[in-house]
Design a protein around this nucleic acid. Structure first.
Length: 586
RNA sequence: GCUAGCGUGGCUCAAUGGCAGAGCACAUCACUCGUAAUGAUGGGGUUGUGGGUUCGAUUCCCACCGCUAGCUCCA
């Protein structure tokens, strides 16, 4: 019964998608009424809202978008019935040809032989569509529709084909819900790491180096703290750490396959008439380290980590704050092993990922990326490796989606995606299975049998790029990092200058215990000092005035606005220590 | 790279085909004030860069650079 009553609410995903699908048809109808010369392509509902792609001889400016929105409201009021009908292929093609819709004709021609070719008619407007739809445009609440953006999109996602204009929209059954949604988006934008990074003094980007981030003192503290933690975890899991050069010669990149597969994205130069490339990945250097001495099966799996600075010439349009940059630090590692050890090593790596992500309270989704067209190695090898990855995570009871053809050129991979404040996901962790590079670099180990064998390896990163990960956690915590990560953990605020000397003693004592502490001795009112420390998300403020000097105490306030009252420095330090050690997320 | 929009002191943002403005920040002075902004005064801008139109351009036009959104890409 209750299921029945939920059938026509947005709680029901099918209904929601249907509602938005009808909205996209209303959008198309509105555009065709206002601008009949526009050619329609395709208009599905998506996870959040709907869009319609079309080819227009003029750009859709904000004014035009507003006009279209108005027309959409009108169509809702007209309560047009949506009627479904089917046509045989030849007639369907003819129908859309007569309407002058070349994209629709192409779609019909590409439908499978036995597919039903269905249309939906609403008033004077008819669109090719598999459905389903609402029964009337009157079901859509006109004043709860909002066109949110207009962007370019390639026809059928193919960058060699027409550039269409995609109009995005969102709609709800009630105006209140639309307002609430828009409000939520506004709130989410306040967590944007680009905004917070500037406000909190973490990093900066400059025109002089597009995509090359500068880390400021506070951001550097955060980065170093993160790396300290990373080293601690990896030590526990049996990793050793190396560092390989940032630039290596062309011969090496040809051997690894990068020169062939990745040249356009590499920064290259000529030194003494020899081509060199700045590394876009750490692995070839790692191969050389492995190959530099003989190995025994007793050493395997051999876990070798490297925080490596890599440079990749990404397309300018793809750059995005710290999420997509042109130079970044990968928390890379290569694990060399026997074939028999593969599943165990993958599972051990996933456990390490779980430990790291849960420390930050982050949840992820896993994608399995399979063989791309442009690959090295045999199909059998690829399938075998894909099956091992699949089995390893299935065995651990984890869900994943398959990303067909998106593997690295040398092997299939498991990608771990984390979400930003607006729900867009970014690949952070990855586990890439590789039996190609060991081949190319002729890596060997001596087996129990005294014979030479070829190891296999994984390439893996947990944080992915330190830069991207810092962006993700900045948004995740809205800049209010857990105590252990906070660039400034404690700020001592004086009420009057009579407490300056005492504040200095406190700072020295806390610094001596290993805490990151600042003093604010400015001749400002205490309210102002508190306000600023709060806005800077400093976890703890120590307010010290005459009273505290006299009692040799500290008055503690949190960035959450909580007044913890007066306590001894020792009691406060003990509290800090406990919170840092537990890496608590408050 | 593609399409559209945007680019004004350190930051957030006004304004205009005719002397470029506010708040915050910064400096100086006064105030010594106990839990989210004390007041006064002052300095700071070739309005992203380069061309063009115009008596005059920050505003209009062109190119380039950068940013934003999405598309494409992401070994």
């Amino acid at each position: 019964m209750s299921e029945e009553s939920n059938l026509y609410t947005f709680e029901n995903e099918t209904y929601r998608k249907t509602y938005w699908h009808t909205c996209s048809h209303i959008l198309a109808q509105a555009v065709k009424r206002l601008y009949p010369e526009v050619k329609l392509a395709i208009g599905p509902s998506i996870d959040e809202g709907f869009y319609y792609d079309m080819d227009s001889p003029f750009p859709f400016t904000p004014e035009i978008m507003e006009k279209i929105e108005g027309e959409m409201r009108k169509i809702c009021k007209e309560k047009l019935k949506l009627e479904r009908f089917e046509l045989p292929r030849a007639e369907a093609v003819k129908f859309m040809e007569e309407k002058g819709e070349p994209f629709k004709v192409e779609l019909i021609n590409d439908l499978p032989e036995d597919a039903a070719i269905s249309f939906y008619k609403q008033g004077e407007f008819t669109d090719l569509c598999a459905g389903p739809h609402l029964d009337s445009t009157g079901r859509v609440k006109g004043n709860a529709i909002k066109l949110t953006a207009c962007n370019a999109a390639y026809w059928r996602g193919d960058s060699s084909r027409e550039t269409l204009q995609r109009i995005y929209g969102i709609a709800f059954p009630k105006k209140d819900e639309l307002d609430e949604y828009l409000q939520r988006i506004e709130e989410a934008k306040k967590r944007d790491h680009r905004k917070l990074g500037k406000e909190l003094g973490l990093f900066m980007l400059r025109d002089e180096g597009p995509g090359f981030p500068f880390f400021l003192p506070k951001g550097m503290t955060l980065k170093n703290t993160l790396l300290d933690y990373w080293r601690q975890v990896h030590k526990k899991y049996g990793y050793v750490e190396i560092s390989t050069p940032i630039m290596l010669n062309r011969q090496l990149w040809e051997r690894s396959g990068h020169w062939d597969h990745y040249k356009n994205n590499m920064y290259t130069t000529v030194i003494d008439e020899v081509d060199f490339a700045v590394k876009p990945m750490n692995c070839p250097g790692g191969m050389l380290v492995y190959a530099s001495e003989p190995h025994s099966y007793k050493e395997l799996p051999l876990r070798v980590g490297e925080i490596g600075l890599v440079h990749r010439h990404e397309l300018s349009g793809a750059l995005h704050g710290l999420f997509r940059v042109r130079c970044f630090n990968q928390d890379d590692a290569h694990v060399f092993m026997t074939r028999e050890q593969m599943q165990d090593v993958i599972q051990e790596t996933v456990r390490l990922f779980d430990e790291v992500y849960s420390t930050f309270g982050l949840s992820y989704t896993i994608e399995l990326s399979t063989m791309p067209e442009d690959h090295i190695g045999t199909v059998e090898e690829w399938e075998r490796n894909q099956d091992i990855l699949k089995a390893a995570i299935t065995d651990m009871g984890k869900d994943f989606v398959v990303n067909e053809g998106d593997g690295a050129f040398y092997g299939p991979k498991l990608d771990f995606h984390l979400a930003d404040s607006l729900g867009r996901t970014w690949q952070c962790g990855t586990i890439q299975l590789d039996s190609q590079l060991p081949e190319r670099f002729e890596l060997e180990y001596t087996g129990e049998d005294g014979q030479k064998h070829r190891p296999v390896m994984i390439h893996r990163v947990v944080l992915g790029s330190i830069e991207r990960f810092i962006g993700v956690i900045t948004e995740h915590f809205a800049g209010a990092f857990p105590l252990w990560l906070s660039p400034v953990q404690v700020r001592i605020l004086t009420v009057t200058d009579r407490a300056d000397a005492y504040a200095g003693q406190l700072a020295k004592a806390l610094d001596g215990k290993g805490f990151r502490v600042e003093t604010d001795l400015r001749n400002e009112k205490i309210g102002k000092k508190i306000r600023e420390a709060t806005l800077e998300k400093v976890p703890y403020m120590l307010v010290v005035g005459d009273r505290d000097v006299e009692n040799q105490a500290v008055s503690v306030r949190t960035r959450g606005g909580e007044d913890l009252g007066a306590m001894s420095l020792e009691a406060f330090a003990a509290k800090l220590e406990e919170e840092v050690d537990s890496k608590a997320i408050l």
